[in-house]
Design a protein around this nucleic acid. Structure first.
Lengths: 229, 229
DNA sequence: TTTGCCCCTATCCAAACGGCTAGGTGGGCA
DNA sequence: TGCCCACCTAGCCGTTTGGATAGGGGCAAA
């Protein structure tokens, strides 16, 4: 809990004696405790609050105005809300840097997160302790940090996917979710009160965006991207 | 690679009142550190080793013969190997209890894990610290522990799904993976050196087992069950 | 006001799919 | 030895798709 004040070297560019105040948002205790332990082994970092829901994140930031916000986008059942959260925080508290700490690596999400104000994106899997610590430091220094694999993924997709990816629209997502439940176009049309043609239209558009040619692939990609559950 | 930066306490031989010796297997440092912190806040529990790969788990168990093995099935890219691991450990070291600590809640995986020798299944999401600690204690006492939500899920599925679920066979999984890549039956047939009929055959069988009627749904269910990535 | 996006609809056709029945092979286990 | 099971193949038929093309209406930002 209490950070042990080990006199570490490299106070770097930051002003001496300044503690980096961090808020951690993750629905998973184990992860929260883990992050806290790793960071607080490091002089000058203190986790001042933990949050487990979207609303709690807002409250925590309001209350503590932290230097860094470490957040797992997947707090509830909807990653999209996590993204909005990035936007809201970076709008209202430009001084608070945001580090996304994700379970999965998805190009779509990375790009969206960065567009909405995230300053870094690390993937929990195979992350090393010092990568986390250095990432936090770098972000505080104003850098943008993309973890191993993340950077290349984004770079690779910048030319090709980025322009056409953007978002899937709400209707497109609805349709994909319906497809994942095994419904036919006719059934989806009936359920959504639209014509079968429209269903096909949405599917075609979503397919172009996710670069797939079969509904099964579409579902898989959307699923892998965390867009559907 | 280099494991934890904290010095381990070696306690010599196990005395009657000895500590519970625990091995933690998870590819995620944050999680490993978190589990260690939570457990070691508790007198009488010591994490004696950490492992990040399937092979390392075997080595660790060989070397330490722990009382409890806490494992995330999803160590590599193949959950199935995690399941085999449960089987191997519980065969070779019946005294070592196995607690599965999963990211996702999947009926199929829970049942498989239990059948293969796991003594408990907790879901990391929304898990509380004391649930973890109490779970470990209960398992050491010989109980089987199913976390909140897990138990009811299994119970609900016992009559319906269990008999027909069984396993998907290797070929069935191969086919599903191919489908998720957007391949047509013809393409899959070509890729797997079998006839289109056979592809359809595997799909039909897999569909019955996962109770789906459309390949898109099949992919989604397999994906949700962690059977494909 | 123009532009752009999202949403909706339509029709056409070849290809793919699902659901079925009815077989054949080889390995492992009782 | 016989049975079970994973695996493989075949053909049929109606339905569902993918892909393309060609529109119209509404709403908001530029």
């Amino acid at each position: 809990m209490a950070s042990d004040p080990r006199p570490e070297v490299s106070l770097g560019r930051r002003s001496p004696m300044a503690t980096t105040r961090i808020v951690v948002a993750d629905r998973n205790v184990i992860t929260r405790v883990g992050i806290r332990s790793i960071l607080e082994r490091n002089a000058g970092m203190a986790v001042v609050a933990e949050a487990t829901t979207y609303d709690a994140v807002i409250d925590a930031v309001d209350e503590h105005g932290p230097d860094i916000m470490i957040i797992d986008l997947d707090l509830g059942d909807d990653t999209t809300r996590g993204l909005s959260l990035c936007e809201e925080i970076s709008d209202r508290y430009p001084a608070t840097k945001i580090l996304v700490l994700a379970n999965t690596l998805s190009e779509l999400i990375v790009i969206e997160a960065l567009r909405r104000g995230a300053n870094g994106y690390l993937c929990k899997n195979d992350l090393k302790s010092d990568e986390l610590i250095n990432g936090v430091k770098a972000i505080q220094d104003g850098d943008t940090v993309l973890g191993r694999g993340v950077g290349s993924l984004v770079a690779k997709g910048l030319g090709s996917t980025r322009d056409k990816t953007e978002h899937l629209t709400d209707r497109e997502l609805d349709v994909i979710r319906a497809i994942s439940r095994g419904l036919s176009n006719k059934q989806i049309a009936h359920e959504m009160f639209i014509s079968e043609s429209t269903v096909k239209f949405h599917i075609q558009n979503a397919s172009k965006k996710l670069n797939s040619h079969r509904r099964a692939e579409l579902v898989h990609r959307a699923s892998a991207a965390g867009l559907i559950t």
